[in-house]
């Protein structure tokens, strides 16, 4: 897998909780998807640990 933050659409509830824990404002909740900004992301994994639905995978390399 290539580096990035991957969101499993079959699991994501679009609740936006990940955006609330992101320390660098790299995630945003849109109506039916989560927008991820690779420029801002520091790959800390807070969103992956937080996600109630287990929908996020952070791949660091």
């Amino acid at each position: 897998m290539t580096k990035g933050v991957f969101i499993d659409k079959t699991k994501c509830m679009y609740c936006g909780g990940c955006t609330a824990v992101c320390p660098v404002n790299a995630l945003e909740l849109k109506e039916t998807y989560i927008e991820w900004d690779p420029e801002k992301c520091i790959y800390c994994g807070a969103c992956e640990r937080f996600c109630p639905a287990g929908a996020i995978k952070v791949v660091r390399e």
Binding site: M13, C15, G17, A20, V21, P23, E28, L29, A46
Partner: peptide
């Protein structure tokens, strides 16, 4: 909880992981 407006205005509204509950 996913507030952006205050962030755009320059306030730090990040919830540290220990200070937010993950709900389902």
């Amino acid at each position: 909880v996913d507030s952006k407006t205050a962030k755009y205005a320059g306030l730090n509204t990040v919830n540290p992981a220990t200070e937010i509950d993950s709900g389902y």
